[in-house]
Simulated assay, not measured.
Amino acid sequence: METALSQLSERLNNRRFTVVNNTQGLSGAGTVFHYFVEEEAITSSYQGGRIRIGNQIGRVTGPDTIELLYQCLTTNGEILAGWSRGTVGADQAGRTTLHFVWGWLSGAVGGGESNYVELVD
């Protein structure tokens, strides 16, 4: 029997995502996120656009929800860190989507909302 955790893992594990909308944040259309899921644990790396290198660590919090901590080094040499809470879904084409509410913890102030869509080869 497939559980909610296995469904979420299937949607995220070893999948890549790009930004659809992130008006308040640093990541943009050139930023690619690559996620991995092992049981409840989530990790990812990201780079591109204004992000030289970044990574995330988090956990599954519900059937379609996750929470993450992230840190990055920008192309301007800034080190930034923050938090996010996300919802995992799907668009009409069947691609996985991510919607986040997020905020900065270090290096910047404020926060916002962002949307991502799976990159399909």
Results as ranks from 00 to 15, higher is better:
residue 102 W to Y: 13
residue 96 T to G: 00
residue 46 Y to R: 11
residue 112 G to K: 04
residue 17 F to K: 11
residue 109 V to T: 12
residue 115 N to R: 15
residue 84 S to G: 12
residue 42 I to L: 15
residue 30 G to T: 00
residue 102 W to T: 10
residue 54 G to T: 06
residue 65 T to C: 01
residue 53 I to S: 06
residue 10 E to G: 13
residue 118 E to Y: 05
residue 38 E to M: 13
residue 103 G to F: 11
residue 118 E to C: 08
residue 116 Y to D: 13
residue 44 S to T: 07
residue 14 N to V: 07
residue 24 Q to S: 06
residue 64 D to G: 08
residue 5 L to N: 13
residue 93 A to E: 14
residue 90 A to L: 00
residue 78 E to Y: 11
residue 69 L to V: 05
residue 29 A to E: 01
residue 45 S to P: 02
residue 88 V to T: 10
residue 117 V to D: 05
residue 121 D to N: 14
residue 52 R to Q: 12
residue 67 E to K: 00
residue 58 G to W: 01
residue 49 G to F: 06
residue 73 L to E: 08
residue 12 L to R: 13
residue 120 V to R: 01
residue 7 Q to C: 12
residue 41 A to G: 05
residue 111 G to Q: 07
residue 30 G to F: 01
residue 1 M to Q: 09
residue 8 L to K: 07
residue 34 H to R: 00
residue 64 D to C: 11
residue 67 E to A: 05
residue 109 V to D: 10
residue 85 R to P: 00
residue 121 D to C: 09
residue 25 G to E: 05
residue 50 R to H: 08
residue 61 T to N: 10
residue 8 L to S: 02
residue 40 E to D: 13
residue 121 D to G: 14
residue 50 R to P: 05
residue 2 E to N: 15
residue 70 Y to M: 12
residue 40 E to W: 04
residue 26 L to G: 05
residue 40 E to V: 10
residue 19 V to A: 01
residue 70 Y to T: 04
residue 116 Y to T: 11
residue 47 Q to W: 12
residue 121 D to T: 12
residue 98 L to K: 04
residue 72 C to T: 10
residue 62 G to H: 05
residue 118 E to P: 02
residue 91 D to E: 14
residue 16 R to E: 15
residue 114 S to W: 02
residue 3 T to F: 06
residue 100 F to E: 15
residue 91 D to V: 09
residue 70 Y to P: 06
residue 42 I to V: 13
residue 121 D to S: 15
residue 35 Y to E: 11
residue 100 F to I: 11
residue 85 R to L: 04
residue 66 I to G: 00
residue 72 C to F: 14
residue 18 T to Q: 00
residue 84 S to T: 08
residue 119 L to A: 05
residue 14 N to P: 03
residue 1 M to F: 03
residue 100 F to N: 15
residue 72 C to N: 10
residue 50 R to L: 12
residue 23 T to V: 05
residue 11 R to P: 04
residue 106 S to T: 03
residue 19 V to Y: 00
residue 88 V to W: 11
residue 72 C to W: 07
residue 31 T to L: 02
residue 52 R to H: 07
residue 118 E to G: 09
residue 74 T to A: 08
residue 20 V to L: 15
residue 33 F to G: 02
residue 115 N to L: 11
residue 45 S to Q: 14
residue 87 T to F: 03
residue 60 V to Q: 03
residue 106 S to F: 03
